[in-house]
Amino acid sequence: MRLAAQRAEVSDWVGYEVGYGVGYEVGTMSESDADGPQIIIEDLVKRFGERTVLDHINIKIDRGETLVVIGGSGAGKSTLVRHLIALERPTSGRILVDGVDMAALGDFELSRVRRRFGMVFQKYALFDSMTVYDNVAFPLREQTKMSEREIKDRVMVKLDELGVAHAAARMPAEISGGMAKRVGIARALVLEPEILIYDEPTSGLDPVTSRTVDELIEEMRERFGVTSVVITHDMASAFDIADRVAMLVRGKIAVEGPPENVMASDHEDVQRFVHSSAIDPARIAQRSARKSPAQVRALRKERLAKQGAPKV
């Protein structure tokens, strides 16, 4: 109930009914607070030319749930989440958001559905012709009727939460990668949308800032009942924020379930992935076998003596 009240409050300054973003009658399926999954991925296949990047993916994401997607580089994680917001069109299969097939929408309806999403891009995707402040203010100016003063308050609060308020007047080219990432997060969160997609929100951040971002993701969920999909390579954060984890291997979902279950899965790829990021005793034991810098230098000298000095 608290949630509904907050939505109404959001609706006030968003200027349209949050949760009824489709804008036309689609029956009870668009009812945002109904039970059941909010996002359904049905038998999704995506090919780029000959390459199959996503291979018959089936997954359901409930309202208020955080799904963490893990998987190696090139497994198709970004491609998967780009489908949720129709930045990619499926080769076959369907994406249903509150029962509405994203691929079947014309660009006008699509833009209405997209208002309910926020997305953090892997490569930040900040508008490089605008200051940090204008980047974060952009969604508010585009989609709400808020005054510049209200906008300023909200933007500065968000920038402050992410620790980048001091950079508000700078251009994206003048800030570090980690800062750009946080500005990207601020921009995605500023409208407090219903569904948030984070593509590696903590990569490139120091551990302390990473935890702050994890907390923010949790807070969005608890305060606004946000449905989130988070891609991460950071296993610690995966287990902190996930209701469910899905591991993508070569375009297929290898394992899916609560973090504990995924951790315990005996799937070979999963074991390798999870254990190469956790600090387990075996790895600590391995450290003693590591060569010291002095040993490495000695080896190099030995090798050079054998080969003769390299010609320049």
């Binding site: 917001i85 833009s111 208002r115 997305m119 891009f121 995707a125 508008f127 490089d128 012709s129």
Partner: peptide, 21 residues
Amino acid sequence: AQLGNMRATEQIDALETMAVS
């Protein structure tokens, strides 16, 4: 150059996700 750079750095995608054509 401008638009190409915006495409390469996903700025055009970002516009779309913010429901801006």
